[in-house]
């Protein structure tokens, strides 16, 4: 799995690519969780660009759950954007769209997390 990071204003956009499963979940988590806490400390938000994610297993969903909890406790914001159809279906079934905010486009997500609460 590849992870690329870029910035859009006060938002960090992290784009994983490939499958987020048992094999790659730890790598994803080790990158994502510190990113959220440091972003929150700097008053910034995190958007996950999922356009490159082909599949997410329950191990991957667990990372998103941890990310959501981390965001909640550190006062940060996190959103997911650009889900592929299969990943979108997984989000629908698992109701993870209720755990993290899902957006169609990355820009929508950036705008949403940047908006004052």
């Amino acid at each position: 799995m590849e992870l690329t990071e870029r910035r859009a204003g006060k938002t960090v956009v992290l784009a994983p690519a490939g499958r987020i499963d048992m094999a790659t979940a730890d790598q994803f988590r080790e990158r994502l969780i510190p990113l959220i806490s440091s972003a929150a400390a700097g008053g910034e938000s995190v958007v996950l660009d999922f356009s490159g994610v082909d599949y997410i297993s329950s191990a991957g969903l667990r990372v998103l759950m941890l990310a959501a909890k981390e965001a909640r406790s550190s006062g940060g914001k996190i959103a997911v954007a650009a889900l592929q159809p299969l990943v979108n279906e997984i989000f629908q079934i698992s109701r993870f769209d209720k755990v993290v905010a899902c957006h169609v486009g990355v820009n929508d997500a950036v705008a949403a997390v940047s908006a004052p609460a």
């Binding site: 969903l61 759950m65 959501a68 079934i93 698992s94 109701r95 993870f96 209720k98 755990v99």
Partner: peptide
């Protein structure tokens, strides 16, 4: 049967 419900248990404590 996909109405109602919520996220998996233990994800959001007071859902």
């Amino acid at each position: 049967l996909d109405d109602g419900g919520g996220p998996p248990l233990c994800v959001i404590e007071d859902y």
